[in-house]
């Protein structure tokens, strides 16, 4: 591109700079993995070992016993959030991009504002409201609360995608006698598959990683996702670091899997959701 780019020394320097940045970015993840295999004695020895020192599976044994149910809970919540986001967002995004409705500008503006509202504001009220409608300590309650991250984001991302879909596709279906619903269900949704996957991936990660709503609307009984499980390991005086690290490793698995499997969707979702707003 320019003079700088031709010099091998400078290219090497760039690689080194990027490598340094990546080391800082990825080190905490590395530390969790190493830490999860350390023995309690090592973790409390007052020395940090950069490489595994006397590795053991004891932490994983503890955590699999104590947290398996919580991992399942988190899976249910993640999947539930993804389903909720899709059921609400796909038709809404379609209507907001392909139908001329008076409410469009108002609704899209309010979705942008919804993204700004801090979760603690919603959590405080939802706790009391959920008490009233018997949604406290329930999966539906937690999923509805977790949807507050995923739903506005999903509608806006899908809407941006639907704009790129030519109107002729729907017109052709209508000419063939398809109803509005059939057009949506048989033509539009299949064409939007990649955008739908992006949105579902993010909604799942939101539900899986949520902590604040689990902490508030579950009020500590019955259902406990993995994020809450990790938090309860943090004692006031002593923390079982081995268990914390092993459960943190579990909590990172979906992000790792999705980063490998759905890399393309993640990069699209992150940029589309933020700038297109």
């Amino acid at each position: 591109m320019n003079r700088l780019q031709r010099s091998p020394a400078l290219r090497l320097l760039c690689t080194l700079a990027a490598l340094a940045a990546l080391v800082v970015v990825l080190f905490p993840v590395y530390a969790v993995i190493v830490g999860s295999f350390e023995s309690t004695q090592t973790l409390f020895s007052g020395t940090f070992y950069w490489l595994p020192h006397l590795p053991t599976l004891a932490n994983y044994r503890t955590v699999i016993q104590a947290q398996s149910g919580n991992v399942l809970t988190s899976l249910i919540v993640g999947l539930g959030t993804a389903v909720l986001a899709l059921v609400v967002a796909v038709p809404a995004a379609y209507a907001l991009s392909k139908y001329r409705l008076r409410v469009t500008v108002v609704l899209v503006s309010s979705l942008l504002v919804c993204q700004i509202v801090p979760s603690i504001v919603l959590a405080t009220s939802l706790f009391i409201v959920f008490h009233w409608v018997h949604l406290v300590n329930s999966y539906p309650g937690l999923i509805i609360a977790d949807g507050t991250y995923a739903v506005p984001f999903s509608i806006l991302v899908l809407r941006a995608f639907f704009f790129s879909l030519p109107n002729e596709v729907m017109q052709a279906a209508r000419v063939d006698g398809a109803s509005e619903w059939q057009t949506f269900r048989r033509i539009v949704v299949p064409l939007a598959r990649s955008a739908v996957v992006t949105v579902a991936v993010f909604a799942f990660l939101n539900g899986w990683g949520d902590f604040i709503f689990a902490l508030t609307v579950l009020s500590g009984s019955g259902i406990e996702p993995i994020t809450l499980g990790i938090y309860t390991y943090l004692g006031n005086y002593s923390t079982d670091w081995g268990a914390v690290m092993a459960s943190a490793a579990f909590a990172m698995v979906p992000a790792g899997v999705l980063l490998v499997v759905a890399q393309r969707y993640i990069a699209t979702g992150l940029t589309a959701g933020s700038v297109k707003g």
Binding site: V29, V244, I266
Partner: peptide, 24 residues
């Protein structure tokens, strides 16, 4: 590869990040 790995912190549950830093 650098560009795709740089987004890792963003994908982790936030409470996990908090706990890891407490450890570090």
């Amino acid at each position: 590869i650098g560009r795709s790995l740089i987004i890792v912190p963003w994908l982790l549950p936030l409470i996990v990040t908090g706990v890891i830093f407490k450890f570090l």
